[in-house]
Every structure is written in C-alpha cells, then in structure tokens.
Write a protein that binds this DNA or RNA. Structure first.
Length: 582
DNA sequence: GCCGTTTTCGGCCCGACTGTTTTCAGTCG
C-alpha cells in the first residue's frame, strides 16, 4: 500500500463528507491528512506495526486518522469510505471534477434528479431537465454543457500540465502585459513559482494603476481561446493550448501580500494566517492588518509579510506546510542549492549511442555553461534501441575521451571529461558490462530500462544487488516514472536509500521535465539518510543542459543544500566519492 | 477531526466572481 493510495482514500472521504454537508472542519482534516500522508518520506505501511506511534507526531494526523491509516494498511480499505459510498454512488466523485460543480450541486443533482455520474449529468443537461430544479437557470445549463465537454476532452490525459509546458507560456505573456504603460510589474505565482512538477493553471499577478487597462490587455492576448471570467480585479482565460491562466491586478503597496497569497500553497497560507491570527494580525491578499486597530502594517513586499509574523522570508519551493514555518521561526531554514552551485553534469549521451551531438560538442557546451566537468555515459549493449555500446565500442569511445582530455590539458582548460557509462541493470540485478570494463570507468551510472512490472520485493532486490556490487556510483532515474505516462515501478525506496548509504552510492535526480526522478519527497528521504543526490540532465543534445533548472528546483523542493548535491562539489572531491572514499 | 504562548473545549483563513435571487449561496483559489 503506497502513501499515495492512502492519501487518495482520505481525499475521497473528504469529498464524500462534503457532499453530505458534514462539518467543514472535519472535511478539512481529511484533506490535510491526505496531504500529510503524501508528503511523508517513509511509507506509512512500514510505520504501521513498526513505529506506529510516530504517525501521530505528524501534523494533521491525530488519533482518528491514525486508526484509519492502520485500518487501510491492514485491510486495503476504509470502513468510513464504504459507509459513505452506501449513500452515494462512487461516480459522484467525478462530478466534482466538472468545473462549476462543487459538493452542494453534486448533492442537489443526486437528490433531486438521481444523477450519480458524469454520463447521467450530461444526459440531464441535454434533455433540459435541470431547469426543473430550483436554483438552476439557463446560464448554469450552458456552462455545464461546456464544462462537461472540457472534462471529456482531457480525460485519459493528465489534468495537470507539465511544468515545462507552463514555463513556455510564461515569458511571452509577461512581455505582452508589460508592454502596457500602466502595468508596472508582472509575475507568475502559484505552483509554477513553487516549481511543482505539474501545474493545474497559471496565476499571474500584475501591479497596475489602471486595473481596467490591465484586464483589457490580459484578455486581448493573441493566444487566448476563451475568456472564462472577468471582474474588476481579476480575470481568467483559457489559452489555445488549453492551459488556464488567472490574472489578479493589484496596487503597488499590495503587491507583496498578493504575491505571498497567490504563491501558496494553500495549506502554507492557512498555517500562516492561523499564526498571524494568534499574534493579533489578519493576513489577506492586500496586506497584514492589526486585528485591534484595523491598520495595515505590511504588504508592499513579501519579506515584510513574513517578518511581521516573526518569520524570515521563506523560499517559494518550501511553502508546502511540511515544517518550513517552524524552521523559519527558529531561523533553521535550509540554504537551498542553486543553479550556480552546479559544477558539472554526470549523465549524458553523444552520437555514439542515442545522442544528437558529438563528444566535443557536448564538452564545449558544458564549458560554455561554466561547468568544470562532465561524465559521458552512453547506454550499454542491452539497450539496443538506443544503440547501446558493447565492451569493444565502449573501450574505443573511452580512448576518444582520453584524447580530448589531453587536448584540454594542453589548452590549459580547467575542464575534465569523466569516463562513464549508463549501465543497464539486468532483470536479475547483474550489470550489463564485464567487471573489467567497469573497472576502467571513472563514473558508473546504473539504471533499470526493462521489466518494469516486477513485484516490489524483486525490483527492490534487483536494484540493491546492483548497489552491492561495489561497481556502481550512481543509480539513475531511480523510480523510472514518466510524469503523465508511466507510473514509478514498485520499489522500496527506503531500502534502496539505506543500501546506497552503506555502499557509497549516490542517487540521481534526473532533470528531464517528464522524469524529475528522484521526486522532491525522495530527495528529502535521501537527505535524511545522508545519501548524496546527483542532479543530472541525461542530455541527449547540448540543448538539454538547460533542463538542469528543473532538477535543481525539484531538489530545492526536497530541501537540498549545496552539501547534499554530489555534482555541486569540486572535481577533486567528486573523484574521491567516485573512488568510494565517501 | 485536529489542536493549544488565552484554550483539553471551542475554535478552525479569507476574498472575488457568478448566477440567481432581491441579500446570498456556491464555487474557486
């Protein structure tokens, strides 16, 4: 039982309670529990039975939720959820995914019209049966029709968008806004600013002394397909690429408070406002206000908002309510790793296997980025589809690297190319090169590329066997997930991390936007166990080096500091680690 | 259902927009 599965059950319970009109704070407790469980670095299943008491130390988990976690782990289901589903069909949860349908409407649909799923709703709308119910008018019917069509069109694909797609829309839209005189600043907030791996929509914030002009500029952007909403202070549009963008227009002295508010996360904001309230302040998107006098005491900049409630400024990537507020209070926030800290890249391909640039071109591009080293890591022979190298071709390519290093040395370039390989971890955990060949390498990156459907215990064994070989330095894309396409393979990450610690192996954080593997949560786990993380790009062309930002920001979401990142170390120290010297 | 620098009981973040209705409920973020 994965943490994400337990979280999903709590999520469902929260929604079902909401539909039943239960105490909204009870509903929130289940939502909060869902978030708490999914951001845990250890598996809840493991804690049950072993260290069960520690469950209640997690904020948001009390006695009742604790008992339900135990029940879910033991039985695979939750009696409360079953009980709730006796009153409603489970298709009712899908109704909530229709934009404009919340718990109240879902309950109304079911009670008055017997609508229990999206198909029923669509039928009712098409037959014009909604008008019979008090409180539902013509406009609602039109909006529902459109919302159902939108729901259908994204079914099967992920509801959220990869961060990289969202990023590609950001710059152009900002420029479009800033080209109007009254718009002084334009920034994107929301999950994009927190660098979440996927985003549901974009939140743009602009400072303007003419709200109407800013709103008009916003909806007249060339990529807009549809204006979803428009008021005096905010508007929302859907772009041609289907991404929704929300705009909020604020005045100069509100910008910081608004930026804080719209960056979220929601649970971070709830915790922050709760804290403010206890201190006699009220925080909203316009500023921080004294509860007593009603006077505004902060709001122009974000830092001021945090300082007013006794905290130092918190990096957006940390704002998930998983301990950052307590850390900020004590001045114990991590000093997060930065893109500029990265000294080199330890995973890339050239035209020898399935890359698009030559060895020399990759080296040159890396030098241009200011790196002091790279490792060339072609595929091994088992990965035939990527023109993996056998031992003979491998040795030939190593010679080319030696030659290049010679040349670089003569030129007095402070740059070194490490001899590496992305060795396939075979089905049985053995490595796809002979030991002799592996011995000639500076940097052995090992990865799983086949048999993704193995049982959890076997996959864990497979990877650990590779780690225990003593021949491996780094495990690449450790879970194999492709965001939106392929789930991670079943594997006990904690066991893998512990084995990595014992055998001086680092774990890769692959920066490809569809991988981001390790995830932020797994980065925290690695850090807790003192296992270094390598932020690599797995570049197949020189352009892919730019993806490093996605890796670094994911690492930042995982609270990693410079010291936690292997390739933030200078070459000498890196070599020491690769020689298993720690 | 959770939680505690007022509290083990009584609170629990806050505001904009829409639609429908004539003062507000529901949804969303």
């Amino acid at each position: 039982m994965e943490n994400s599965e337990i979280a999903a059950i709590f999520e469902d319970i929260a929604h079902l309670l909401e539909i039943r009109g239960e105490n909204p704070f009870r509903v929130r407790s289940y939502k909060r529990a869902a978030e708490a469980v999914s951001s845990m670095t250890v598996s809840a299943e493991k804690l049950v039975g072993e260290d069960e008491k520690s469950l209640e130390e997690i904020p948001g988990i009390g006695k009742s939720i604790h008992e339900k976690i135990v029940e879910i782990v033991r039985t695979g289901d939750c009696s409360l959820k079953k009980e709730l589903l006796e009153k409603f069909p489970d298709g009712i949860l899908d109704l909530l995914k229709i934009s404009g349908v919340g718990p109240k409407k879902a309950a109304l649909f079911y009670e008055k019209l017997g609508i229990g799923n999206v198909d029923d709703l669509e039928k009712a709308v098409n037959e014009g049966r909604l008008g019979d119910v008090a409180g539902l008018g013509e406009k609602t019917e039109i909006n529902l029709k459109r919302a159902i069509a939108a729901y259908r069109s994204i079914q099967g694909s992920s509801l959220r968008y990869k961060l990289s797609l969202a990023m590609s829309s950001v710059d152009k839209y900002s420029k479009h806004m800033l080209s109007v005189k009254s718009v002084k600043r334009a920034e994107f907030a929301g999950s994009l600013r927190r660098w979440k791996e996927t985003v549901g929509d974009l939140d743009m914030l602009v400072e303007s002394n003419d709200h109407e002009a800013a709103l008009e500029r916003f909806v007249s952007y060339g990529e807009v397909a549809e204006v979803v909403q428009r008021g005096e202070k905010k508007a929302a549009v859907r772009l041609k690429n289907r991404l929704q963008v929300d705009l909020r227009v604020v005045d100069k002295d509100e910008f910081g408070a608004a930026l804080q508010y719209f960056t979220g996360s929601k649970s971070h904001n709830v915790a922050l406002r709760d804290r403010a309230k206890r201190m006699g302040f009220k925080i909203n998107e316009y500023g921080v206000f004294s509860e007593k006098t009603g006077k505004k005491v902060a709001g122009a900049d974000e830092k001021g908002v945090y300082e007013k409630v006794g905290l130092c400024w918190i990096e957006p990537e940390l704002r998930e309510d998983i301990g950052e507020i307590a850390a900020a209070e004590k001045g114990k926030l991590p000093k997060l790793v930065d893109v500029d800290d990265i000294q080199g890249d330890l995973h890339m391909h050239t035209t020898e296997s399935d890359g698009h640039n030559s060895l020399e071109q990759m080296a040159e591009a890396a030098i241009k980025r200011g790196y002091s080293y790279i490792a060339i890591t072609e595929h091994s022979k088992a990965v035939g589809i990527a023109h993996g190298l056998d031992e003979t071709r491998l040795r030939k390519s190593l010679k080319a690297i030696d030659n290049l290093n010679e040349k670089l040395k003569k030129k007095k370039a402070k740059f070194f190319v490490l001899k590496g390989a992305e060795v396939d971890i075979r089905h049985d955990g053995s490595l796809d090169y002979e030991e002799d060949a592996l011995g000639e390498l500076d940097c052995v990156v090992a990865a799983v590329h086949s048999s993704f459907n193995m049982p959890k215990a076997e996959m864990t064994e497979r990877i650990i066997r590779a780690i225990e070989s003593g021949l491996v330095n780094i495990i690449a894309h450790p879970t194999g997930r492709l965001i939106g396409y392929r789930p991670p393979y079943e594997m006990d990450m904690e066991k893998v991390v512990k084995a990595a610690k014992t055998h001086n192996v680092a774990l890769e954080l692959n920066s490809f936007p569809e991988r981001l593997d390790l995830s932020d949560v797994h980065c925290r786990l690695a850090k807790e166990h003192g296992v270094p993380v390598v932020i690599s790009t797995d570049a197949h062309s020189e352009h892919d080096f730019a993806n490093i930002v996605y890796g670094v920001h994911t690492a930042r979401r995982g609270w990693l500091e410079k010291n936690d990142v292997l390739n933030a170390r200078p070459l000498v120290e890196l070599k020491k680690f690769l020689a298993k010297g720690g």
